[in-house]
Write a protein that binds this DNA or RNA. Sequence first.
RNA 1: GCACCUGUAGCUCAAUGGAUAGAGCAUCGGUCUUCGGAACCGAGGGUUGGGGGUUCGAGUCCCUCCGGGUGCACCA
Length: 659
Amino acid sequence: MNLLRLLQQRFAPVLADYADDPAPFVSMVRPAQDTRFGDFQANCAMPLAKRHGLNPKELAAKIAEKVHLQDLCNEVEIAGPGFINLRLRDDLITSEVNRLLTDDRLGVEPPRPARTIVIDFSSPNVAKPMHVGHLRSSVIGDSLYRTLKFLGHRVISDNHIGDWGTQFGMIIYGYKNFLDNDAYTRTPVAELARLYRLVNRLSDFLEARSELPGKKRELEVAERELAATPVPPKGSKDPADKEAEKAIKKLRSQIEGLKDETASLAKKIERVETNAAELALANAHSNIARAARDETAKLHAGNAENLRLWNEFMPECLAALQGVYQRLGIQFDLTLGESWFNPMLAGVVESLKSSGMAVASDGAMCVFIEGNEAPFIVQKGDGAFTYATTDLATIQYRVGELQANEILYVVDTRQSEHFELLFKTVAKWGIAQVDLRHVNFGTVMGKDRRPYKTRDGDTVGLESLLDEAVKEARTIVDLNEAQKADKGEEPLDDAARQSVAEIIGIGGIKYADLHHARESDYVFDWEKMLAKEGDTATYIQYAFARTKGILRKNSIDPIQLLAQGAKIQLSHPAERTLAMQLLKFPEALDAVCAEYRPNQLTQYLFETANAFSAFYNDCPIKGEADEALRNSRCLLAELTGRVLGRALGLLGIQTVERM
RNA sequence: GCACCUGUAGCUCAAUGGAUAGAGCAUCGGUCUUCGGAACCGAGGGUUGGGGGUUCGAGUCCCUCCGGGUGCACCA
């Protein structure tokens, strides 16, 4: 049972006497923000009093009196300017928490209308190895998938992989010109990745070489301009001086930007120039960028050779991706890449043209959305389609074939303009009713507050990241085992340690990611991620392991206890707090789904693990003489373990019974 | 130039328009001859970037200024 919803249902009929639409006031019944104020609070009296010109405290008292609460609460207190503070009856908490013991769904009720929700996440490019940037999308998307599904929605995860884009032409070009056959036979994916990087590097080099002089000139001009600009007196309030100050600031930031740009170009040049073999290649393939684009165009046009190569590469690339997903514990219902929608693209553009939405502009077919200067390009000047076109076709398919009521895109914030245009285009296009939602997230940063990169400036590969995390976790596990040995506890064998390290390491990465509000950028910090203390996966996994340890070391079988009719009883404040926390699991999931925020669940987990640790400290089982109390505590530990395990599972994080 | 995001404790971050703004880390101090110390309890630390406004009530909504970031025509 969802206690919050139950209370809201009790308030609803009474609040209907004071407002035509009581819904917003009903939603002002909410969990108490502070335990001093009880378990729940109703904040609806103040605005309603204002509306009716009544005294808020009197109205609060009147509402509290009218709402049928006697069976739920034993204290109803009016506080402050008109808050109604509610404290649940202990017997209610006791009976509810006992009900959870035999409830597989831990009190979570199915959603009123179950919706069909497509979640689009991860979406790597098969031409490039996955990097740290794919992590957030994968982890957040997977968690939302698991959570919505557990709630009872029909959820379809779709990995919209990039298997048809421009960068695929680079691989084909590389294959045709630079292939190392032995390497390809041995490790095809690694060789393809090498080819991609090589072609990319060469084409970057050539572009940089032609751009650098111009940029340098721009920089010189800007620097001369700055030197020639008189500096206004500091703190002057004269509007003219303020303008001048602004101009100088702008020039400075422009110079900074140009310096960064020239440095980056110089680096691209240096990378190749210092390598005689690559320099020779670059000079021999001076139109490589264009040639690679042509390979893409040929592929799209159905060129037999390129299609054959594409078909040869794809299974290998997909298998490589699969390896990473397996390690992350992520599964997709569908993997419909861009190529899959290719046959539908011409039809999409036709439809947009015939409805007059798409018009030719500078040779490209564009949809112009009011208020946006930049067009939404659905077909390029050379006739090729863009990802905008693919996205439109994908929506058409998901609505038409998959019957989606809702589509979630778990994609980097930096693409928000694209989604804005996409969603507006869809609305104008008038295909069936569907809620489209960009579930955006911020950038992963290094400790230097710049996008997370290796020392050489490359993006960090996802696999090496996972390896590193597991390695770190392993040293912690070994250290801990060494300490355990002193206490004469049974040690874990090597295989068990490695498995624990894998679960702790990957869990740590996932948790660190999920516990940040998704919109904010976050700083990737190894130490914090795998720290043994604080708000980390380890802390919660440890609490879980303790719930198991408690039963194991006291030789208790909870199923047997239940069969014997044992019950949870609440005799200590720590027990009440813990029980109350367990009953809030459904609320936590509601909070996640309201705005698609997994961090609501990590927060719940941390609070629950906290409540359990306090209980563990204050309420021993071993020395307890009262058998009923002992049994009660065992059952509470067992139930806590189930909630922690389930909630971690919804985050895609595994647990171990011993660590 | 246009658009969007952002500014909260020393650091990293929370907080559906609600009460005295909370956690973790770090710092300092306590607990434990009992089930796992990867634990528990406590303390200090804040004009929520500045200034206006809306509201019974603002970190949250609106305006403005300052600082930081991102994106803007044929890459995805």
